[in-house]
Design a protein around this nucleic acid. Structure first.
Length: 873
RNA sequence: GGGAGCAUAGCUCAGUUGGGAGAGCGCCAGCUCGACAAGCUGGAUGUCGUUGGUUCAAGUCCAACUGUUCCCACCA
């Protein structure tokens, strides 16, 4: 083994070994319980970023843990076609070549989509493999492969047949850059400072009089079909029912009364534009107002707008304002804070407008999804996201699922000239026939489905649904789902209701949300900001295991966290530490006996076995609760602080003798490797190979279980005392500047047999750890050299004969300080025990512990006092 | 307008049913002590945002406040 851990050569070789051994592949096995995770399929828009690395590291930890526990653990991988996101990318790429979508036509465009998939889909798979993820690659799926296409059609048709899917003209969110509708969830609202323009319309019945209102979008006056006031507003009561004239289009529109209008805001008058505003649409519906659309698909104004036709919204706004000013109808402009809707993909302003689209009626579908959470069948982790989940479902709106795009699942609906729409299984251009008029000249809907329509089926469509496959039977429902908290509405909710409706079961039992990875300054990572971190770069520099560990330790579930280089460096250092511990053990392998169960275990052996045993219990529990960051930190700390700093160091003096020190260390270390394996798969696998030769792979070895018979609480307590003793001696040596090369003698005076036995049994390593030439354990002070440095340690007093270095005055000061500290402790313990509230109400073991401490402190205090008296005299 | 998170050492953050404040990095001092200088040993640094409340006991539970981040919502 090399002196430094070098991940590069190792990782590729190990991953190949796993693949070749088919270790990732889970067969249907009736003797095992299934444990399934579906990947959150990455979009094929680009290569993976650090957020993907993080999310999938979580899944990999869970699936590796469960696999070792003996489940038929299956992690199903795949990618998502990401309809609009990918289409935007392809269009951009084509623009660089000077071609357009329309220019090349649908078929050629789709060909480019598949090329895109071939490039990025495989790049993503490669990246996932570099991260060491143990996905069942034989089951790799894509949201647009044949099976999933069939599932999508089936889903659409079943919803349509049940009347959940309908087609209608409604106010939709329109992105004129992408020229498509988008769902409410895709609209981002940003507070911005905008201008609120005050405008007045002449009142027809009262020549020379005007009614004044305010708007942030003056160009939409061209689509106004009323102005509204509050019915209780005395200022305008007389005007209700009169008419005003919209300038430029000379449309006469009524003044109506509606509760929606707030008397306080603006002028107390609102222009009503049902064709371009969600609120106005509802007001318009209540008052039977006409709905006028003034926009073309590309965002310019249409023929209704007269002289403004062909102008962009922005240009039209300027023009309308200046024309209003000219006509004397413009009053003033004021600055206000207003929220503007933008498209989450292209960041352009979204305009509400009328469009005929396909919708899913959500109200009834949402109910069982809500129920699943409220009855506790669905577990949401962390819990607080449950509130967000149910709140959204309670106020859910219908889902606009049609998109005016090409890359995606084309809607399986066929139009006939007679007006009939056919939606049925297996309709193709060849066999389509109108059910009403018998015409065979049907045209398929041009639109494709929202990308989340297919994602919603992911946990079961990937297992063969709608067919009743054995895989679906066995692996479904899945167990846990890891997802970013930012896609709860897009995906989490939609999988839930789709699965319940289609399969009658929840798609997963535990829904786990993780936070976002931010840069070192706390900003969101994004391509445009240029602060994104490429996981491949990180793992090339530090190794995959270090990256994985850095992503999860010290992060609380569901919280965002910053990614900093220092953290990954310390994790890289840890891999080296682990590597060298293994190197050391390997060098001692020849001295190892097979005997780790025998009764001649020393205190240190018992301590190590027992504390590792406790670690197993803690880590297993944390992993079962999905508290991965804490679990990783526990293993990390134990290996470094306990196993290496104490376990190995305490064993060193024992190697010369014929004993089982090496065997115990190795046996414990193998368990530690198993605990660490889900987090750091490569290095643990490599070391596992060096340290034993009975098992082929750590991946499929058994997860360690807590063994009651390995609990040695007494030994643990004793070693804790010894560790304190060593620390005290080292600290004293440092304080006195005694170089490590200078050996000293230790005279330990303990006044009871148990304590003397403890120090006698462990005098070998105690001497070694403390840098002593010899250790003398006695029952009294006779034989201890004069002017030795004395230390109070648990249960005893240690004298170090370094008299030539001891400054008597310093020593007196130190003892006085120690005396004061101990006196304080005694007082604190006494007052605590004198408190009836504590003794009566606190847990009994706490009270007992406090009493023990009091005795110990009193004991130590009297020894300090005695020492001090010696110096003073 | 509604809701949620966060506030702990110089920095980044942990802190699991309430029971004597922790890690990593940084800083100071010293170390080639049987693997590891990507290491070892020792050390300094905290009114746990503020104010109240519950409790024998609060970083932890409750309330209010301040700062900050985010989500939802149709306010022209």
């Amino acid at each position: 083994m090399d002196k430094q851990y070098n991940p590069h050569e190792i990782e590729g070789r190990i991953y190949k070994k796993w693949l070749d051994g088919k270790y990732f592949h889970a067969e249907i096995d009736k003797d095992k319980a299934p444990f399934t995770i579906s990947i959150a399929p990455p979009n094929i828009t680009s290569r993976l970023h650090i957020g993907h690395a993080f999310e999938n590291t979580l899944s990999d930890i869970i699936i590796r843990f469960k696999r070792m526990q003996g489940y038929a653990a299956m992690w199903l991988p795949g990618t998502d076609h990401a309809s609009i996101a990918t289409e935007v990318k392809i269009v951009e790429a084509m623009a660089d070549e000077g071609i357009t979508k329309e220019g090349i036509g649908r078929e050629a465009f789709l060909k480019r989509g598949w090329e895109w998939y071939n490039t990025y889909g495989s790049a993503i798979v490669e990246q996932l493999q570099r991260m060491g993820f143990s996905c069942d690659w034989d089951r790799l799926r894509f949201t647009m492969d044949d099976g999933l296409n069939r599932a999508v059609n089936e889903f659409f048709i079943r919803l349509y047949e049940k009347g959940y899917i309908y087609r209608g003209e409604k106010l939709c969110n329109w992105c004129s850059t992408c020229e498509t509708t988008i769902s409410d969830a895709e609209v981002m609202h940003n507070e911005q400072e905008t201008l609120l323009y005050h405008i007045k319309y002449p009142i027809k019945e009262l020549p020379g009089e005007f009614i004044q209102f305010a708007t942030t979008r003056p160009e939409t006056i061209l689509a106004d079909t009323a102005v509204a006031v509050n019915p209780d507003d005395p200022r305008f009561a007389a005007l209700i029912g009169m008419y005003v004239t919209v300038p430029f289009v000379n449309r006469e529109i009524p003044i109506i009364a509606d509760d929606y209008v707030s008397m306080e805001f603006g002028t107390g008058v609102v222009k009503i534009t049902p064709g371009h505003d969600h609120n106005d649409f509802e007001v318009g519906t209540r008052h039977n107002l006409p709905q006028i659309n003034i926009l073309n698909d590309d965002g310019t104004l249409n023929q209704i707008c007269g002289v403004y036709e062909g102008k962009t919204v922005k240009a039209a706004r300027e023009l309308v304002l200046s024309d209003l000013e000219t006509s004397g109808l413009f009053v003033k402009a004021e600055k206000i804070q207003n929220s503007i809707g933008t498209h989450d993909r292209c960041k352009d302003i979204v305009e509400p407008r009328l469009k005929t689209q396909w919708f899913v009626a959500m109200k009834k579908l949402a109910e069982p999804a809500l129920d699943a959470y409220k009855t506790g069948k669905l577990r949401i982790i962390p819990e607080r996201f449950g509130k967000v989940y149910s709140h959204w479902l309670e106020g859910i709106h219908d889902w606009c699922i049609s998109r005016q795009l090409w890359w995606g699942h084309r809607i399986p609906a066929w139009f006939c000239a007679c007006g009939e729409i056919s939606v049925a299984r297996d309709l193709t251009a060849e066999n389509a026939k109108c059910a009403k008029c018998g015409s065979t000249n049907l045209k398929q809907e041009e639109d494709v489905l929202d990308t989340w329509f297919s994602s919603a089926l992911w946990p079961f469509s990937t297992l063969g649904w709608p067919d009743k496959t054995p895989e679906l039977e066995y692996f479904y429902p899945t167990q846990t789902m890891n997802m970013g908290r930012d896609i709860l509405f897009f995906w989490g909710v939609r999988m839930m209701f789709s699965a319940i409706e289609m399969t009658g079961e929840l798609p997963f039992k535990d829904l786990i949300f993780h936070g976002l990875v931010r840069d070192k300054d706390g900003n969101k990572m994004s391509k445009s900001a240029g602060n994104g971190i490429d996981p491949l770069e990180m793992l090339e520099q530090y190794g995959t295991d270090a990256l994985r560990l850095a992503l999860i330790t010290g992060n609380a579930p569901g919280e965002d966290f910053r990614f900093r280089d220092e953290k990954i460096t310390s994790c890289r250092n840890f891999t080296n530490k682990l590597w060298n511990a293994a190197r050391f053990l390997q060098s001692k392998a020849s001295t190892a006996t097979d005997n780790t169960d025998s009764t001649d275990l020393t205190d240190t052996d018992k301590w190590l076995i027992s504390s590792c045993n406790n670690l197993i219990k803690d880590v297993t529990k944390l992993l079962e609760e999905y508290d991965l960051g804490l679990a990783a930190a526990k293993v990390f700390d134990f290996i470094w602080d306990e196993f290496c700093d104490w376990g190995i160091e305490m064993a060193k003096p024992r190697f010369a003798e014929n004993n089982n020190a090496a065997a115990v260390l190795t046996s414990v270390f193998l368990d530690l490797l198993r605990l660490l394996h889900p987090f750091m798969p490569f290095i643990t696998e490599e070391i596992f190979g060096y340290l034993q030769n009975s098992e082929k792979t750590i991946m499929l070895s058994n997860w360690p279980v807590y063994k009651a018979e390995n609990s040695h609480a007494d030994a643990e307590r004793e070693i804790i005392n010894l560790k304190d003793t060593v620390t005290a001696i080292r600290s004293a040596r440092a304080e006195k500047n005694v170089p490590p090369s200078r050996k000293v003698g230790l005279y330990i005076v303990g006044d009871n047999d148990g304590v003397r036995g403890l120090y006698e049994r462990n005098s070998g390593w105690l001497a070694s750890m403390a840098g002593a030439s010899d250790v003398v354990v006695t029952g009294n002070k006779s034989g201890v050299p004069d002017n030795s440095l004395s230390l109070i340690v648990p249960g005893a007093v240690v004298y170090i004969p370094i008299s030539d270095l001891v400054d008597t005055e310093q020593e007196i000061t130190r003892l006085e300080k120690e005396k004061a500290r101990l006196a304080g402790e005694v007082a604190r313990c006494e007052s605590k025990l004198a408190n009836k509230g504590f003794t009566d109400k606190a847990r009994p073991e706490l009270v007992a512990a406090e009493q023990t401490k009091l005795t110990e402190y009193k004991d130590m205090l009297s020894k300090v006092a005695e020492e001090l008296a010696g110096y003073v005299n």
